[in-house]
Amino acid sequence: MILDLFRLDGKTAIVTGAGRGLGAAIALGFAEAGADVVISSRTADELDTVADQIRATGRRAVAVPADLSKAEPNLLVDAAIAEFGRLDVLVNNVGGAFPKPLLDTRGKDLDRAFNFNVTVGHEILVAAAPHLLGNDDGGSVINITSAVGRLPGRGFGMYGTAKAALAHYTRLAALDLNPKVRVNAIAPGSIVTSALEVVAADDTMRGAIESATPLQRLGRPEEVAAAALYLASPAGAYLTGKVLEVDGGLLAPNFELPLPDL
């Protein structure tokens, strides 16, 4: 059955930034497909809620509250090996940066954005690699980038640059880890999560974004989770070094910050 290719039975996954939004949806989707999951974010209460949802599917969950920009890189990998004895999938979802006018952006802002969106994920990947390479059937790494990493938008100099770097890092890491470990990325567009809740609640703003999106709507977290499951599972076994654009068909930005011409 072709649906069997989307199963993760007996596998263990790490999902960062999993207290809510895309990370929570991906972690729950993996559990529904049969995986045990190590989840992490900075907010323990949110993690506990997601862990309970994972356990309700019949799978096991380990919640590790941590600021990954300051934590030891092997923290989550050690938790996976100690609890489950293996590691098969790593999802580097943690990241982000607040919009800021370009001329107000300083070097330290770019350093912080690059560290949070690229360096943290790289260090976890390096810690995970020996375990992924040691599996008979290898492993899968999925980096969450953004449509802003390829589409220019005012105010997104820090975030877009970091996410563009993460997309190319994905290609480079895939080449180094071939053929046993596949490394891919997902570039979401405007997805209804807490990051967009203000926009989604405003009919005018939401309507403007939807009308500028070819599919005429915002995305749902489970649609990104489905893409992650594809990349993590045997269904995506012939993909590496690729970026899946789960963005409603965007060819241009669908959200512009109200920044004036200089």
Score class of each variant (00 low, 15 high):
Asp67Pro: 05
Arg206Asn: 03
Asp176Asn: 11
Leu103Thr: 01
Glu223Lys: 02
Pro221Asp: 01
Val243Arg: 02
Asp67Met: 01
Phe98Asp: 11
Leu262Tyr: 10
Ser140Val: 04
Ala97Arg: 08
Leu103Ser: 00
His168Gly: 00
Leu218Trp: 15
Gly19Cys: 10
Arg150Asn: 08
Leu257Cys: 08
Ala235Pro: 08
Val120Ala: 02
Lys100His: 11
Phe156Ala: 12
Leu22Asp: 04
Leu231Asn: 05
Ile2Glu: 12
Ala25Pro: 13
Ala24Gln: 13
Gly149Val: 12
Met1Pro: 08
Thr49Glu: 13
Leu110Ile: 04
Pro130Ile: 15
Arg206Asp: 04
Asn178Met: 13
Ser146Val: 14
Asp261Pro: 01
Leu75His: 05
Asp9Glu: 15
Ile142Cys: 09
Val37Ser: 03
Leu90Ala: 01
Ala212Met: 12
Val38Cys: 03
Asn254Lys: 13
Thr16Glu: 03
Ala252Trp: 09
His122Ile: 14
Val141Met: 14
Ala129His: 07
Phe98Gly: 01
Pro65His: 12
Val224Trp: 00
Tyr169Gln: 13
Ala63Lys: 07
Asp111Gln: 08
Leu239Asp: 07
Val37Cys: 07
Ala226Phe: 07
Val148Gln: 05
Thr204Val: 12
Asp202Met: 10
Ser41Met: 03
Leu177Ile: 01
Leu250Thr: 02
Ser69Met: 11
Val89Ser: 11
Asp88Val: 10
Leu175Thr: 00
Arg42Asn: 04
Gly248Gln: 11
Glu46Met: 09
Ile209Ser: 13
Pro65Tyr: 06
Glu72Cys: 00
Ala164Asn: 02
Leu133Pro: 09
Leu259Ser: 02
Thr12Gln: 08
Thr213Pro: 13
Val181Asn: 10
His131Trp: 12
Leu262Arg: 09
Leu132Phe: 13
Leu172Trp: 06
Val141Trp: 05
Leu257His: 14
Glu222Val: 12
Asp88Met: 04
Asp176Met: 09
Lys242Glu: 15
Asn254Cys: 14
Arg220Lys: 13
Ala167His: 00
Arg106Met: 06
Ala127Lys: 02
Ala195Lys: 06
Ala147Gln: 10
Ala237Leu: 06
Asn135Thr: 12
Asp36Arg: 10
Ala24Cys: 09
Ala128Asn: 07
Gln53Ala: 15
Asp176Thr: 03
Glu32Arg: 15
Val141Lys: 10
Asn92Val: 06
Gly58Ala: 13
Gly96Glu: 04
Ala82Asp: 15
Ala208Ser: 11
Gly85Glu: 03
Asp203Gly: 01
Asn117Ile: 05
Ala27Ile: 04
Gly155Val: 02
Ser41Cys: 12
Asp104Thr: 00
Asp137Asn: 10
Thr240Asp: 09
Leu218Asn: 00
Lys70Ser: 08
Ala44Asp: 09
Thr193Ala: 01
Leu250Ala: 05
Asn115Gly: 04
Ala165Phe: 00
Val181Cys: 13
Gly107Gln: 03
Ile54Lys: 11
Leu125Asp: 06
Glu245Phe: 14
Ala227Asp: 10
Thr145Leu: 00
Val198Tyr: 00
Pro253Thr: 10
Ala173Leu: 08
Gly236Thr: 00
Leu215Pro: 05
Asp137Tyr: 03
Phe116Gln: 06
Asp36Gln: 07
Ala235Thr: 03
Lys180Thr: 01
Arg154Leu: 13
Ala208His: 01
Thr105Val: 05
Val141Ser: 10
Gly207Gln: 05
His122Gly: 01
Asp67Val: 05
Ala201Ile: 04
Leu177Ser: 09
